[in-house]
Nucleic acid binder design. Sequence first.
DNA 1: AAAACGTGTTAACGTCGCTACCGTGGACGT
DNA 2: ACGTCCACGGTAGCGACGTTAACACGTTTT
Lengths: 235, 235
Amino acid sequence: MDVRTRILHAAAELLSHAPEADISTRAVCEAARVGAPALYRQFGDKEGLLTAVVDYGFEQYLAGRSPACSSDDPVQDLKNGWDDHVGFAVDNPNHYRLMYSPGLSAPPGAAAEAHRLLLEILERCAAGGRLRTSPQTAANMIMSAMAGVALSLVSRPTISADTEFSGRVRDAVIEAVTVPAVAGGRAPAYGGTAVAAATLGALLPEGPVAPLTEAETGLLREWLGRLSDTSITIA
Amino acid sequence: MDVRTRILHAAAELLSHAPEADISTRAVCEAARVGAPALYRQFGDKEGLLTAVVDYGFEQYLAGRSPACSSDDPVQDLKNGWDDHVGFAVDNPNHYRLMYSPGLSAPPGAAAEAHRLLLEILERCAAGGRLRTSPQTAANMIMSAMAGVALSLVSRPTISADTEFSGRVRDAVIEAVTVPAVAGGRAPAYGGTAVAAATLGALLPEGPVAPLTEAETGLLREWLGRLSDTSITIA
DNA sequence: AAAACGTGTTAACGTCGCTACCGTGGACGT
DNA sequence: ACGTCCACGGTAGCGACGTTAACACGTTTT
């Protein structure tokens, strides 16, 4: 086995059994039967090792659940994504604590990946006319509340007695940023300018729109984001 | 000045200017011009010192804002309490990181105090018939989301550009656990059994209710809590 | 007056993250 | 085939950390 993956596995093993999310590089080196310089050559830093371990664990977790995504209802995907995220936190408390604990100067790539996944689902929601705000704002709102719930669950097990607790916050936040589905397919202009702007913003293609220059498209995109985050629904 | 408060002030000063929420006991001792054993005699442990510092800072913050509480609208108090809490986090990022960072075996008393304050407001909401759930459940929901938002704001300053962000999550969660006020004073039985149960539970006095024994009252209290956390509103 | 006690200092221990230094083994040019 | 270079891992050590034994001083009690 590669030295790098041996260190990675040893660190993950130690981390998952540690009482508090803190492991010493010496213990990792001893468990991997490797000298200290090998570790520092591979990961540069203790923080580099920890972020690599977290990224590795999160990637594995994602690989085991990928087929669950992308159903026909993006709002349902949103809820499933929430439950998956919280489930990862409960199953790997120390990994999750490291992921969202302050102190790491560079947030692990896993957190950025989770944010990206959430944003992707939210853009599908916006494309279906189901979003009240810009996908970016909704992603920040959902991610913050979700991380707060997950951290509460992993740090204060007294709360976990209420199994509905996470679902309640989930539905509260998701219902605040989405609009209910209507029977006849896509719902245009329902919910005022904010929903329309969010929908249009999601439907815009990647590059410049046909009759507009690139600068104009960028400005339009910014205005749509601002419009979709304005709660005035009565023009 | 007392040695204990001198250490406390030095630690608070160092903590507020530290780049990451971690200070060394040696630096605290040097700043307070005190030997190390004095610190350990006063606080027993580094964790004891940190919790004392956090409690001290939170207490001071609370003392400066106490008159804002307890208006005539408890739901408005809820929102004000949320903004105060997030404001404390933004003003004292390192204190807040310590307050809600995992790794401390015993959570600081400040966190328990914040939870108690929130619960107090929520019980006033329930007494006014404005709560959909039990105060305990609502407190857990609000506290988790609030801590998540606050930690996002102090840990990832890129989000703080959106000044409305905290208010959006706040309104989403608060509107999910409360019912809107009605014109004619108290609103009995509006919103189904859950609201009625929460209201009754909040209106019950501290000790045993007159025609019931103490055991019966305890059981009634437990049933009311369960009822108020059941989302079935159609009997 | 003497003993007991709380409280501070000096000096040290063990562990941590990290690194300068050196040895080894294979790639590569001649 | 042989010498040179270099990526790579091991040995030993540095400085900083949290923590604590041993001792010194002032106050209080007997």
